[in-house]
């Protein structure tokens, strides 16, 4: 471990990021600017999340990375290896064993505990961005709590699709003050934003960090006559038969064959270990994992 400083970043940088994180926790939902560093990966691959993870990791931590819920995709594997190499921390695929979880686009199905930290990778932290291109103006809107525009987006959804069609990155209001983009998690995950663990959001290219402290009130925006509804595919997991988890749809042949399966691979594997078998699944065997 002489090749790198612990967790890649130098101590001054980590200190700077920790200050931003603390400020973010003190003002839930507020986007704190920070001096984002170049990371050895392209923007859009989680440079913000990696920097936040680097700043919160300690040698005793157990680290888990998920990408769209899965532990075994390229992005997840390479970030996990990165910290294995630069920080020498223990790694795991089990949600319950991890103390720091970096995630892209999902919240694990299993409820997180108070001693766990969830780090999100955020592409565009500004929820108002696609409606108001000016950063000066959006900052002013946040400062003055002028959030009418956010509802214009939802209005447009209903007028065009008959329902609030926004399915991911669904805007939320944190602790009755700041409107926040929860990163592109499916709106199915929005109710889980009120949790026991600490949630940190890092946007590397946009140079913003924000946070939700444990047990903070997080309300998904909606209309009185079109209330917020978390949605998922109307199906059970074909591997583990779970009916309460968020599903991926997989096309399996060119004859219209498809299967639905949990996007959270760890959750699915655990259920199969416990003996649950879905419509297209086979009983769990050790060598498969």
């Amino acid at each position: 471990m002489s090749d790198y400083n612990f967790a890649y970043l130098d101590e001054q940088t980590k200190r700077m990021i920790r200050r931003a994180i603390l400020k973010g926790l003190a003002i839930p939902g507020y986007q704190v600017p920070f001096a984002s560093r170049e990371m050895p990966m392209p923007y859009g691959w989680g440079t913000g999340g990696v920097q936040v993870s680097a700043a919160v990791l300690t040698p005793d931590d157990t680290f888990k990375v998920i990408d769209q819920g899965a532990d075994d995709t390229t992005n997840a594997v390479s970030i996990r290896r990165f910290f294995q190499k630069t920080a020498g921390v223990a790694i795991t695929e089990a949600t319950s064993k991890a103390s720091v979880i970096q995630t892209r686009h999902r919240i694990p199905e299993e409820n997180l505990r108070a001693d766990q930290i969830l780090v999100y990778q955020v592409p565009i932290p500004e929820p108002l961005r696609f409606l108001e291109p000016s950063e000066v103006e959006t900052r002013k809107m946040h400062a003055l709590e002028e959030y009418g525009l956010m509802h214009v987006k939802l209005y447009e959804d209903i007028s065009q699709h008959g329902d609030i069609a926004t399915a991911y990155a669904y805007p939320v209001k944190v602790e009755g003050r700041y409107v926040m983009d929860p990163s592109p998690i499916p709106k199915f995950d929005n109710p889980k934003l009120e949790m026991a663990g600490i949630q940190l959001f890092g946007a590397g290219r946009e140079q913003r960090i924000y946070a939700i402290p444990p047990y903070t009130q997080v309300v998904s925006l909606d209309f009185d006559d079109y209330p917020f509804q978390p949605t998922k595919a109307d199906h059970a997991c074909d591997l583990c038969a779970a009916e309460d988890s968020y599903l991926d749809e997989l096309i399996v042949d060119d004859e219209g064959g498809r299967m639905f399966m949990c996007s959270d691979t760890d959750y699915c594997a655990n259920r199969r270990k416990q003996g649950h078998v879905g419509a297209q699944g086979v009983p769990y065997a050790e060598d498969q994992a």
Partner: peptide
């Protein structure tokens, strides 16, 4: 880039109208 209805509704939503109908 917002429909005519959304344009008219924006000021209403800015003063906390929250009923789509």
């Amino acid at each position: 880039n917002v429909s005519a209805g959304g344009n008219v509704g924006e000021r209403l939503m800015a003063v906390n109208a929250r009923h789509y109908g």
